[in-house]
Design a protein around this nucleic acid. Structure first.
Lengths: 247, 247
DNA sequence: CGTTGAGTTGAGACATTTCAACGAGCGTGG
DNA sequence: CCACGCTCGTTGAAATGTCTCAACTCAACG
């Protein structure tokens, strides 16, 4: 987290200038990168990158995106959710391994791929930050492999909610996890039931039913399809399979 | 692929000196790295890294390893297979996201973590190679998310076999994929039925049954549990769900 | 006000798991 | 040498969790 004076105006006013890869750059580095950047807006449902194409490189300034892989017969698996401050795209690789869609209105801060790679070669902090993102993505992907390969439907739903909780805690960043163990959390679900199903390897019907079961168990409240209140994080963690139920 | 003269003796005799991260290093870089390296042998079943620990950094010279994640109640998911020339461990991260076990006799070329990271900071080719490995791992993990979330049991088995075929083609590296589409391939299965099950999110019984089904379909022959002959790659690809069956 | 899409709920179907038995290989010790 | 115990892999029959198919509600919208 650098706090210089002469940062570019676009960056000074940017909601994520102290988050994501930009947080690791000095003023002059930020200027250099800013001169290469171009903002672009996308509409909900718009496809930003096609699997197999060269794809876009840039920061997510605002909005929600999904990365998904598709089978020949149309089955889909969402492999990643992207939010504000996440980095989109794989510099170094010339082939996107998933299709990227905007779920909400999305604002990106994009770069020309070659220019970005040249800049990254000059700015150790930038390339380190990008690679750190890739490493974090890998850890998340493996966490999800455990979910998809081993967890039952209700555990998958609980794990998904837990991930949203953790994300919110990381963003607000004011407390640590244990302090909030007993606080009620009201969550905005950023994606549809269909997208949740494709993310968790389930069907929309099962997603709906398991949300209901978690409600009946008293773990959550469902205000509407997009708004969930978590009553007890420990019980949500138990439902997610993170603690052995010695029942 | 550099071909210098004054490479360290250990590297000159190393089976993977022209593969993995070492392939991208000049003689003097190789020397520098070699001076930091230490060979270590592991026995089948031995645990090399525990999930959550700092872990080992190094090259796999020879042998087969699995990376796995475990749930509180003992359920396991294998998230990666490592073979000769693969890179083990996550420099930059101080927490291994999975447990690593030797499946066969394993020889590693390990490095002190801090020294390796310092070396990587000096050698752009090295850090690029390590990051490229991480990127490739991410692509594989996402491929597996699609498998675990969407594919049925027989497709998972077929995909697994296809991955072994592809690996063999990459290693032998003499032909391209299409040239071998119709060739019979005899594969050595490097892991047990239980490990296959944990890799594919199935049970050993289902793995056994689906191998039998692929045999009955005439796609493969089963010499014994560890040796499979692939009769038709196109049909294996179809069984794996990579082509839409317009039946 | 009819249409459309998203979400929920129910009943039955189905794929995979679970439970159980069995055979082959293999080292150990009598 | 054979009996024994053990693990690994295979096979069968029953149980079960999730999917499929279908109906219905609700809100948004032209």
């Amino acid at each position: 987290m650098k706090t210089p004076k002469d940062i570019p105006e676009a960056c000074a006013n940017c909601g994520i200038r102290n988050r994501g890869v930009c947080a690791h750059l000095y003023a002059e580095e930020l200027s250099k990168l800013d001169s290469l950047s171009r903002r672009r807006r996308y509409r909900p449902g718009e496809t930003i990158v096609m699997e197999g194409s060269r794809g876009v490189v840039g920061n997510v300034i605002d909005g929600t995106l999904v990365e998904r892989k598709t089978m020949a017969d149309g089955r889909e698996q969402i492999v990643s959710l992207l939010f504000s401050a996440d980095f989109l795209g794989t510099p170094l690789s010339n082939q996107a391994d998933a299709t990227v869609d905007a779920v909400s209105d999305v604002m990106l801060c994009t770069f020309d791929r070659d220019q970005f790679e040249a800049a990254a070669a000059d700015l150790p902090g930038l390339s380190a930050a990008v690679h750190e993102q890739a490493r974090a993505e890998l850890a998340l992907a493996r966490e999800w492999m455990l979910l998809l390969g081993q967890k039952r439907a209700i555990e998958r739903i609980a794990t998904f909610l837990l991930r949203l909780v953790n994300r919110r805690l990381n963003v607000t960043c004011l407390h640590n996890f244990d302090d909030l163990m007993d606080d009620a959390q009201t969550l905005m679900i950023p994606i549809s039931r269909r997208q949740i199903a494709d993310f968790l390897g389930l069907t929309t019907e099962t997603v709906s039913r398991k949300f209901g079961e978690l409600r009946d168990l008293g773990v959550i409240d469902i205000a509407d399809a997009r708004h969930i209140t978590v009553h007890s994080l420990p019980r949500l963690r138990a439902a997610a399979g993170f603690v052995d139920e010695l029942a």
